[in-house]
Design a protein around this nucleic acid. Structure first.
Lengths: 138, 138
DNA sequence: TCCTTGACTTGGACAAAGTCCATTGTAGGA
DNA sequence: TCCTACAATGGACTTTGTCCAAGTCAAGGA
């Protein structure tokens, strides 16, 4: 993650305590926090940080391509620091757990020309839904 | 669509003017209206219909499997009366136009066992994003 | 080290989408 | 026709997120 901080500094980001804390919260694998969750964890490290700043910072990280926005349900957006390797998402319909997954092949190849209606397609998003082992056991 | 009304009556739905109007609005191919759009069109036919009733009715149609909820963007949910043939969605990133599309093959086959983390997968949702011919020309 | 400046942060107001609930109305059966 | 359970209504409320004016501060220069 200090990698990230370095890259951001290199891009002319002004380094503030708030931005550092948000970047630290978004560290790890299979991390998919909502903005409010990021805020809650940031507050533990920096009690005065405001919601607006968390939203601003997340938005900047997304524009810079350092974090991905994920919408696996129609509730809050989630922020995924795994922006460096393309992947899709597997979601537990019961508990909401999210895993990054890597399907083989190119999903775009499955859409025939006759089904493209003249669109220029630039991106495919796949969400697998099911029940995670935990919920299946419970 | 009178098919739909018949089916609903058969399932013990109490038929009201409001429900009939909502069902009528949701008729056709490539229809992907938001709840507010459904309400706006319903009001033209039945001026006193309330927003809450539109939400209730849409929710019921979804539970009954007669209409699908689609979340192609982070804004309002859209309601898709094409619930009888499985399909995916193609979305214009510029203007938001949505088309139903039918990819070949089973997208589930592309996810190796090692990438399933013990989940039992029941559903795959694919969203293709790009630029529609109209927006590309403009 | 201290100043300056423009970028950053803050809190609160605001907005969009949707839910909830008490009250009122009505479809459909007896 | 009358009853009654189910449905509709509208307004308050919630969640998620955006916007803004005012205050604060990081970082480069003197």
């Amino acid at each position: 993650m200090s990698d990230l901080l370095e890259r951001l500094r290199g891009r002319g980001w002004r380094m503030t305590a708030q931005r550092r804390v948000v970047a630290e919260v978004l560290d790890g694998d299979h991390v998919h926090l909502t903005a409010d969750e990021v805020h809650a964890r940031a507050v533990e490290k920096l009690p005065e940080i405001s919601r607006a700043t968390v939203y601003n910072t997340l938005g900047e990280l997304v524009s810079l391509g350092e974090v991905l926005e994920v919408s696996t349900d129609r509730r809050a957006k989630r922020y995924d620091p795994n922006a460096h390797r393309p992947h899709q998402h597997l979601v537990c319909a019961r508990c909401g757990a999210i895993r990054d997954v890597h399907p083989v092949g190119n999903p775009l190849a499955d859409l025939p020309d006759t089904e493209r209606f003249g669109f220029t397609i630039s991106d495919v998003e796949v969400t697998y839904r099911g029940t995670c082992p935990n919920c299946a056991a419970g």
